[in-house]
Design a protein around this nucleic acid. Structure first.
Lengths: 347, 347
DNA sequence: CTGAAAGCGCTTACAG
DNA sequence: CTGAAAGCGCTTACAG
């Protein structure tokens, strides 16, 4: 491997001069620069990023922790995140928990060992808040509360709930089935804000006197379970006339309705929550609550910027129980609006 | 940051002893080990991976170059790749060209700068073969030929074509429309083997005297174009009675057929090529040629293993025009069988 | 403006 | 079995 030393020797200059040229830093006379550049070309010199990484204690890599990239929600989110990061010269490392049998802890470990500069946390976690707040490295949460000092970006699920409820009420729905994650996630103080749309829908429908049942699908990574759940709805609630669930659930429910000869939207309305590509490729264009992926990704990246800036900032005075390198402002929570995109599956 | 030096000092031993304990290498007496371990715990020592990376000239990271992770084909492939890599303690770096406006060259550059140990190349490329063969670092191609010394793993698209043709012939199709990438990719010596299934289908249908038209969809990353194309088919070929395209194209075509009141599969058959989750969430379960993602990922990972082993191997004798660190056996091409999964969209 | 030196935090021969 | 030393390939104060 040809290194800076070789270039320096060939150009007849010192190591530091080569470094200055490579990094385009400081002042180097024109002919020095020329000599170095020609030597670099001659030798086909390529700087080794690992050495820089060590010196700077940075990898310019952000990990994205999520259940599985195979789920359209996360692949869409990740695509947008990658765009934001790339614009900042940051790389995107895939950290799927379901695709690898690695838990979040292993990825956090990698963060601690400086294999990444920060982490976007978008998977469910069972860790108590003090686990997350004790990490003292750049973390930004997507759609879940991890404790003081960990900024959160999420969609406005209450608004999503209101939009769904209004649609259902206005169109005269009478028996709504909501499909979502395990009901245990609804506990007070849950880290999992997604379910707020369910709570909002339930409340508003109750006020309007509309029947509303909740059906548990498996966890987000268990896509087969979603399919089974969607089909089972029709057995369990033969008079259902509206189904609300993720894009996957909604698509499969729509397919099953068609199989049973149920008219959509006349006899059954279907609303998808997420609004990924899959909402457009189902049997009909699904009416969907669309999460604003570009805005979410942009907000996450901005938060990450400041977490990283704080991390690189003034070293903490070594009393590691009281001080942190990372921003500990009262947890900022940024809420991104959603929109109801009318499709062919609602009246 | 607490480093090995601090641990050594606290434990009253030398740096190397700490290193031996951390890496669990060589022989360390029990009480030495105990002292070191307690010091590590005390100080909450976490090894800095960057230093190791520099020494070993390795990052244990594989980049996956693809058009966009938002496309179900690539998100599925990537999920499986990540599983294989994780089992080998390798991380997966996302390298989407369409999601970042970065070309493959930028990712290859990162490979050269040792920011990754290897690359899986699964995007289309306009570079001539000598570009790829001149890189001399671990690269494994998925479904495209990049030149001597770059191993290829691909699905058996000829078999896929035969399965499709047989299905269409046996079911009495009379006017088939094939949807695929730009026809220019069909040139002799193309780097893009995917289109072989189109060629096979065309040939077999011609032999059977069945009409077959080819319609160009946009590039794989341009999903909106796929949707438009699928709809346009019905205008352009009113008597079409079978459509073959990617999962996305097939799903949208099926949706459009339903909108037009066309009976599937009685009056129109639809076959999806890929067999991702999306083939299951369309209006009906799509009959699909399923690419064997687990097998593909496994094969890619095995090839990557040996490319990396060769890369770390004996240094080339510095005559960089004749020798390479990387395996230059006659290009191995591994062909993975596909399967036709019957669904509700064929007769 | 340029060069010699120290150092990023670890690992690994090599003596003892 | 343990320690002192050199080194991974670069960067950045610091003298000249």
């Amino acid at each position: 491997m040809v290194g800076m030393r070789d270039v320096a020797k060939a150009a007849g200059v010192s190591l530091s001069t080569v470094s200055l040229v490579v990094n385009n830093t400081g002042y180097v006379s024109a002919d020095m620069r020329a000599k170095v550049e020609s030597a670099m070309r001659q030798l086909n010199y390529i700087p080794n990023e690992l050495a820089r990484n060590l010196y700077r204690n940075r990898t310019n890599t952000i990990g994205v922790i999520m259940p599985t990239i195979a789920h359209p929600f996360f692949s869409t989110l990740t695509a947008h995140l990658q765009r934001e990061f790339a614009a900042r010269d940051l790389k995107t490392l895939l950290c799927s928990t379901a695709d690898t049998d690695k838990g979040e802890s292993e990825y956090i470990d990698m963060l601690q060992r400086h294999m990444m500069d920060g982490i976007i946390m978008a998977a469910h976690t069972e860790h108590p808040a003090d686990y997350w707040t004790s990490i003292h490295r750049p973390i930004v949460a997507f759609d879940r509360t991890l404790g003081e000092g960990v900024p959160v970006v999420r969609s406005d699920h209450e608004q999503g709930g209101r939009l769904i409820a209004r649609q259902l009420i206005d169109s005269g729905a009478r028996h709504v089935v909501l499909v979502g994650g395990p009901r245990s996630q609804f506990a007070e103080g849950t880290t999992f804000p997604t379910i707020r749309y369910h709570l909002t829908v339930e409340r508003l429908l109750a006020e309007a006197g509309i029947a509303c049942d909740y059906v548990e699908a498996g966890t987000v990574a268990d896509i087969a379970a979603h399919e089974a759940t969607a089909c089972a709805i029709f057995e369990q609630y033969p008079d259902v006339d509206a189904i609300v669930g993720s894009d996957v659930v909604a698509s499969v429910a729509l397919q099953e309705a068609s199989r049973r000869g149920i008219e959509v939207p006349a006899d059954l309305q279907v609303i998808a929550y997420d609004g990924t590509l899959m909402a457009e490729t189902a049997g009909k264009r699904l009416t969907a609550i669309r999460q604003d992926f570009p805005a979410i990704a942009a907000a996450l990246a901005v938060r990450m910027d400041s977490q990283i800036a704080a991390d690189g900032g003034p070293a903490s005075p070594s009393k590691n129980d009281s001080a942190s390198n990372v921003d500990t402002q009262p947890t900022p929570e940024e809420v991104i609006p959603v929109a109801l995109i009318p499709g062919e599956t609602t009246r």
